[in-house]
Design a protein around this nucleic acid. Structure first.
Lengths: 236, 236
DNA sequence: TAAACCAACTTGTATTTACAAGTTAATTTC
DNA sequence: GAAATTAACTTGTAAATACAAGTTGGTTTA
């Protein structure tokens, strides 16, 4: 185990990766605490700290006398998922259509969440997308990112990569947490056009503030979602 | 601290109660770890275990060098929260009206989530509630709990305590995780009657499966939520 | 009086030790 | 061979010790 990153965190990341990659699957037992102590040459409280992190994340459950049982890979933070009538997880055949390429604008007034003055003064990068699942329009989303330290963001291609992936790969920005408000609203003419639902039809409206690993850096989304074929699915 | 209940758990319950009752409010510092050690005559790892439980529940955050800061009576896992236009957290003046007291029934067919055969055979405890915020009906929920090892559940009073609190205090059952599906639907005559919205009005419909610390024990809720005055609020 | 320094305090990480309680496999007994 | 017992293993709880890193308030210095 290398220095500067706490040992418990390193073990947590190793085990987490093994679960996400399917090396340990739902129902499998992880190595016992004492086996992990021997394998990684660390003490049991440190192992337990790593396992507690996995436990709190919901990736494992623990059973006294039996061991640590994998419950399965959790949803990535902030990732939207849908579920059809079969309770199947995850996205189906997702296609993204960029309605408005990233451009730098002033923040809309009024804005759905309060903004710091610095963020407001820097303007926002605005991105408008339609996301289709199995060729059916499901999500119509407006995204607002503070125009702070995102060089050449407006020249990136969003059809082929998700917004989260671009932020993570190109800017080392990872979504860590967030908050959202969800309402049921009537589709107006705009939503009717994009989501192919009748005017007045009930759709979900999500307002989200996503917190990242960059201190003080948040970004925002306003998403309308058609749930007639797929429900919005989440875990907690 | 008395025996048979782990000490860390007793301290967790004491501190949690103090936060919920407003003795410590959002932004307040809890006593330091060493102060709690002296006060309760337990060692620091035990104190930290209790504080970690509060941390994982979201009731506090910790700041090295500063202390443990109360974030407020958080969202417990699976707790529904609402937010008005001010982004204020948490529940307002919540009142619960029991429409149908707990009774033991067969599971409805078809049921919204797959059931184990043992669970299906045991029947369910059914509870129907209307929850009002500032005297406005907001949540209409149907709850289904497997009729397994919940002695005298049907004789408990639900108006004065939440379902989660009763499960936790009387049965040591805590909600640990869960999954949900959210849709926007039109209010039918039933929902119109309970949530005081026009027939056809868009409301949220949540189907939830809540996982507990008791192995294999899940319970379920179907919730309709009127979001015209308050949004459904969540963090992730 | 403002800035720098230091002490006391805070949480974060890690090790060591000990015992309790639950699970599973091996051994013993009938 | 089946049942009972025991040993080895598992996680759960708790204490004691040590050092690191961040925060805050008091003291000293310029």
């Amino acid at each position: 185990m290398t220095e500067s990153i706490p040992q418990y965190r390193q073990l947590y990341e190793v085990l987490r990766k093994q679960i996400v990659e399917g090396i340990y699957r739902q129902g499998d037992l992880l190595p016992s605490e004492s086996a992990l102590c021997r394998q990684y040459k660390i003490t049991r409280p440190t192992v337990r700290h790593a396992l507690d992190a996995l436990l709190n994340e919901g990736m494992i459950r623990k059973h006294q006398g039996k061991g640590s049982i994998v419950t399965g890979p959790a949803n990535g933070i902030g990732i939207l998922s849908i579920s059809g009538t079969t309770s199947a997880l995850g996205m189906h055949n997702l296609r993204t259509h960029i309605l408005s390429k990233p451009s730098i604008l002033k923040w809309p007034e009024p804005f759905m969440f309060p903004l710091d003055e610095e963020v407001r003064a820097s303007g926002c990068i605005y991105l408008e997308r339609l996301r289709l699942v199995d060729d059916r329009p499901i999500f119509y989303d407006l995204n607002y990112l503070p125009n702070i330290n995102l060089p050449r963001f407006t020249s990136r291609k969003f059809e082929e990569q998700s917004l989260f992936d671009i932020l993570r790969r190109a800017y080392r920005i990872e979504v860590k947490s967030g908050e959202q408000r969800i309402r049921a609203v009537r589709a107006d003419n705009n939503i009717h056009g994009y989501l192919n639902v009748p005017v007045g039809y009930p759709v979900l409206h999500l307002q989200r503030k996503l917190n990242t690993n960059r201190p003080g850096y948040y970004f925002f989304s306003s998403i309308h979602c058609n749930t007639d074929a797929y429900a919005l699915y989440g875990t907690f």
